[in-house]
Amino acid sequence: MSDTPKSAFDPNPPRRNFYGRRHGKTLRQSQKGYLAEDLGDLRPRGISLAENPARRPIDPAAIFGDDRPVWLEVGFGGGEHMVHMAATHPGIGIIGCEPFINGVAMLLGKIRAAGVGNVSVHPGDARDLMDVLPDASLSRAFLMYPDPWPKARHHRRRFVTPEHLLPLARVMRAGAEFRVATDIPDYVRQTLDEVPKAGFDLIGETGTPWDDWISTRYEQKALREGRVPHYVTFRRQG
């Protein structure tokens, strides 16, 4: 029997491991300034246990000040795609999750340069955010060039596993779009196998990007090294 998403908010999410880097090379002074000056105002409240010990659902409308559609980017890397989406779609609010602090600092610099105001930044694991989002609260989600975890014994760490996909399905509205971009064929295979089991319909898998796409540094590196990008689109059932 295939897994199915939980139908209601869970106030007691399971304890979990985190895999991956949180820090990289030493930050530049300007990046340290972005973190000190900008992150506090952009960070959504109520995600940590210290702020929300009862694990009550947060109100996405409180993040952006109105009931606009809310999108999520999981692992935004250097932030090119997230800032581009915010600038291209000013009527939405987009939350980005990224535990790698160097990537967070890069994003904050791009937010300053672009002057976008419809963004929120969680400098941590996307699962922590999904723990406290209400059911059916997201209108779109992005997984852009995720960590491939290429060794077979590490495939369970990939985002496209039930541990991540079932909570994602819970917080996405019926008909909401889930986009995945990767240059790793085996990641495509696992994505096509696992995402439908979590409550999504496959809409398309192609080598042509979406109309509002911006090429990121990860994609450009893949192309330089001869790997072929794949763009996969799903729609939340319901």
Rank of each mutant, 00 (worst) to 15 (best):
T26G: 06
R173T: 13
G20F: 00
E163N: 11
R236K: 14
D38P: 03
R140E: 12
M85N: 06
R235C: 09
P209Y: 06
L39Y: 05
Q220P: 05
L202W: 02
Y231S: 02
V188P: 01
S30A: 15
L223K: 14
A141K: 07
T208G: 03
T191P: 01
V104T: 09
R157C: 02
P148Y: 00
E37D: 15
G204F: 00
L42A: 12
P185D: 15
P150Y: 07
G226T: 03
I184R: 00
E98L: 06
Y218S: 03
R45L: 06
D212Q: 14
R55P: 03
R158D: 02
P60V: 08
L42T: 13
T206A: 04
L108C: 11
L39S: 11
G109T: 04
D212A: 15
Q237V: 10
L165V: 07
R16D: 08
I95D: 06
D183E: 05
M82Y: 00
R153Y: 12
D211E: 15
L143W: 00
A181M: 01
L192M: 04
L108I: 04
H89Q: 08
L143E: 00
V171H: 02
R173V: 07
G65Q: 04
W149G: 00
R236A: 13
H230M: 03
A8S: 14
R28C: 09
E80C: 11
M1W: 11
P150E: 10
Q29I: 07
F100W: 11
L168K: 00
F142G: 04
A198E: 06
E177H: 01
D128R: 14
A113T: 15
I58K: 06
V160L: 05
P134G: 03
S2H: 08
Q190I: 13
F64Q: 09
V119R: 10
R15I: 13
W71E: 13
A87M: 12
A136E: 01
F18Y: 15
V116L: 12
L133K: 00
I203T: 11
A141E: 06
P146R: 00
F159S: 00
P90H: 07
R179Y: 05
T206W: 00
Q29C: 02
V232E: 01
F234C: 07
L108R: 08
A8R: 14
D201P: 06
A87F: 08
F9S: 13
Q190A: 12
D131A: 14
V70T: 14
P14M: 12
R28K: 15
S48V: 05
D201V: 08
G117H: 05
M85E: 11
E51S: 04
R227M: 08
R68K: 09
F178S: 09
A174C: 06
R15K: 15
A198M: 01
P99E: 10
E225T: 05
R45A: 13
N102R: 03
L72Q: 00
G109N: 04
P148D: 04
A62C: 10
H122K: 01
P99R: 10
S30N: 15
S137P: 05
T208P: 02
R68V: 09
